[in-house]
């Protein structure tokens, strides 16, 4: 038991250090409701996500009192299918600007570096806008585009590919992880032709991601499972770990008559602490 207590103590201390890093980076902690708001006729349930709970808190302030951009985070468990997982949820709320990705990627880079692990990390990038551009260029109507997105949000890649396969085998080939080289050589030039704004956006985001020094690859089947994602979606993996360390993206949440936009991510503490420490040993 002593070993278990020592391990839990170590994790607790590392969690405090992560929180300390967020505070030093200018992010403020805010308390959030661990249950999701009850719908009429429905029993309340434990939350599956922090983002909506954070926005709910923020929306209690009048627009005049909200000074954007706003850097906030929430900590605590989320629940899914009878399991719970401790997490830190970091949100950069902004006012229609597109600075969030740069700041969030830099923050992730600093968090990663603080752990001093030698393991290989992969930052996977998806993008709702690019996916929709691809689907529209293939000839899918808006209903078909929505079907592809719904299938991908449920992890049903084969089902999503079937919608595109009807229009030609080449379209479905893009719904898989693509190396940076394959993206640049094959998909980027094509995007330039059919959707120039999407192509520019992808180049901007790729440059920001690559600046972190992490191995980066695109995967348009990565859409996240939340309906509030509107643009970039990303996940950080350690090769061989089998669970995401971080999942996030650009969001748009409507709360009553107000709309909140920004970029955020969830850091999953259990896989984060299961990462082996490198020879540098522990926190830098």
């Amino acid at each position: 038991m002593q070993e278990w207590l020592a391990e839990e103590t170590r994790r607790y201390q590392e969690t405090l250090q992560l929180i300390g890093q967020l505070v030093r980076a200018g992010f403020s902690p805010i308390p959030t409701d661990p249950s999701e708001p009850e719908e009429p006729g429905e029993q309340g349930r434990m939350r599956r996500d922090h983002t909506v709970a954070i926005v709910e808190r923020l929306s209690s302030w009048s627009p005049q009192r909200l000074s954007l951009p706003l850097r906030v985070f929430s900590s605590g468990p989320v629940y899914e299918h009878g399991r719970w997982a401790d997490s830190l949820d970091v949100e950069y709320v902004e006012d229609g600007a597109t600075q969030g990705e740069a700041e969030v990627f830099q923050l992730i880079q600093r968090l990663v570096e603080s752990r001093a692990s030698q393991a290989e990390l992969v930052l996977a990038l998806g993008h709702i806008g690019l996916l929709e551009a691809l689907c529209q260029a293939s000839g899918l109507d808006s209903e078909g585009v929505e079907s592809v997105r719904r299938s991908l949000s449920q992890g049903k890649i084969a089902e999503a590919k079937r919608f595109l396969l009807n229009l030609g085998a080449e379209w479905a080939e893009w719904l898989c992880p693509l190396s940076a080289e394959r993206w640049q050589r094959h998909l980027a030039p094509w995007l330039e032709q059919v959707a120039p704004p999407a192509a520019q956006e992808s180049q901007r985001l790729y440059a920001l991601a690559a600046a972190t020094g992490l191995s980066t690859r695109w995967d348009l089947s990565l859409t996240g499972s939340w309906p509030y994602y509107t643009g970039l979606v990303f996940s950080l993996y350690e090769v061989g770990l089998g669970q995401a360390l971080i999942k996030g993206g650009r969001f748009r949440v409507v709360q009553g008559s107000r709309e909140f936009r920004g970029v955020g991510f969830t850091l999953w503490l259990d896989p984060w602490f299961r990462r082996p420490l490198g020879s540098a040993g522990g926190l830098a």
Binding site: A124, L222, V239, G240, L241, Q243, A244
Partner: peptide
């Protein structure tokens, strides 16, 4: 039969794909 994949391994390990 369906082939299923772990999302992290799928996106981080090229050999899996």
């Amino acid at each position: 039969a369906e082939v299923i994949a772990n999302p992290a391994h799928w996106r981080a390990k090229e050999a899996v794909v």
